[in-house]
Simulated scan of single mutants.
Amino acid sequence: MVDELTDQNYETETKDGVVLIDFWATWCGPCKMQSPVIEELAEERQDVKFTQMDVDQNKATPSSLGIMAIPTLVIKKNGAIVDRLTGYTPKAKLNQILNQYTD
């Protein structure tokens, strides 16, 4: 399952463990390609929390993180940003990157 994040719950929801945040928008073509990849990984992996944030509905968080292009995937581990990927990321590559941060 992919959880929806808002500016209000971002800090609380992403402070523990390994969290992937997908910054996206409804009008973004590459975001529509990225979403099924994230949903598949969310089904397969229990060791990562998968979340997404609509940048049109929530402007403060993407702005504070300097996100200028979408999709941008941010990976946090115990509340600290450990990786950032901009543009479409294929499933195998994303899985490999996530493996670096899970024990």
Rank of each mutant, 00 (worst) to 15 (best):
V19D: 12
V18F: 15
D56S: 06
D16C: 05
L65F: 15
L65E: 00
D3Q: 13
E44Q: 15
L5H: 04
L98V: 03
N9I: 04
D22S: 13
P30M: 01
G29L: 04
Q52W: 09
L85H: 14
C31D: 04
G66S: 03
I70M: 12
Q46P: 08
C28M: 03
T72D: 00
D3R: 13
V48I: 11
Q96T: 15
A69G: 13
T72C: 03
T12I: 05
K59H: 10
V18R: 09
Q46C: 04
E11K: 12
G17Q: 06
A60C: 02
V18Q: 12
E44W: 12
V19E: 10
V74G: 00
M53K: 04
S63N: 07
L65P: 02
Q8W: 03
I21W: 13
Q8P: 07
I81A: 10
L85G: 05
C31M: 07
T14A: 11
K93N: 13
N95D: 15
Q52L: 04
V19A: 07
E44C: 13
V82Y: 09
D54H: 00
D7Q: 02
T89Y: 04
S64I: 00
A25H: 05
G17Y: 15
P62S: 00
M53P: 01
A69S: 15
G29F: 02
S35A: 07
N78D: 15
Q34L: 10
A42V: 10
L85R: 14
D56V: 06
I70G: 04
D22T: 11
C31I: 08
R84E: 15
S35P: 00
V18N: 13
L20C: 12
E44M: 11
K32P: 03
N78F: 01
T14R: 05
M1H: 06
L20S: 10
E43D: 14
Q8S: 12
L20G: 09
I97G: 09
N78V: 06
L94Q: 07
Q57F: 01
L20H: 12
D47R: 09
N78Q: 11
T61G: 00
M53I: 07
T102E: 10
E13W: 12
K32C: 03
M33D: 11
G29P: 13
I81C: 02
S63R: 05
D56L: 05
Q46N: 13
L41W: 08
I70H: 11
G79S: 01
V37A: 04
E44I: 13
P90E: 05
V48C: 08
P71W: 00
R45K: 12
Y88P: 06
D103T: 10
T51E: 01
A42G: 13
Y88H: 10
G87E: 09
Q8F: 06
T72F: 04
K91F: 08
N95S: 14
N95P: 08
N99A: 14
R84M: 15
E4C: 09
R84T: 15
L94A: 09
V74T: 01
V2A: 02
R45D: 02
V48L: 07
E43S: 14
I21Q: 10
G79Y: 07
W24I: 03
I67M: 03
F23W: 02
L5N: 02
C31Y: 07
M53E: 01
M33Q: 14
